[in-house]
Amino acid sequence: MTTETLSLLDRVRERLESAFPGKSFPIIQNTSPAAQHSLLLSSEDAVEVAKFLRDGDGLKFDYLSNVTGVDWPERQIPEKKQVQVPAPDGNGTVTKEETTTHTEPGYLEAVYHLYSMELRHGPLIFRLRTQDRGEKNHLPSLTPVWRSAEFQEREVYDLFGIHFDGHPDLRRILMWEEFQDYPMRKDFVEPDDYEYEPTPHGKVLERVKARTTPAPQEVK
């Protein structure tokens, strides 16, 4: 099973490289025993590649099973370096170990699991990555290629905040529409008034309060 998956991935990659010359299709290695490796696609040509995967001879990935998001926040990676510093007694230099950190930028990732119902192979896994977790969180929608992405991409938008350009109906699906944050992100903080929604009852209470609270007395 393991070698089969790998060879399917290699075969698909060869086909992609011949069909899209000049583009690279890096493989993201999976170190677990499942060994389900995946392809990283660039968001510029993702729709074209997806159409090719769906229709290409011998590929025929007609069934998009699973779409999901993964949040990879910014990470601090410590690095140890040997540096020469002046010796404390003023004679020459001594070697000292210095730890610096460099920041690996965060990004959001959409993962797609494809199978072929016609040829019965799969899974083929590919990933799309946004540029960052802030403003540049756009990815092309693959709903025009596979309808089954419709609700799943909406869910990824709802819970992770990835904007899928070209999605026919990108709205929140599980959270209510006034909800502001993206709950599945790693840095999400639960609000203490989780269920807050303005209700007529609240407005009535405000009016009652305004009427019944006496005006502040002037202090002499």
Partner: peptide, 16 residues
């Protein structure tokens, strides 16, 4: 489990 990922699926009564 060791770092990595896995997707497993079964034929549940309602589908995949």
């Amino acid at each position: 489990p060791k770092a990595g990922e896995a997707y497993g699926r079964i034929e549940a009564p309602k589908g995949e």
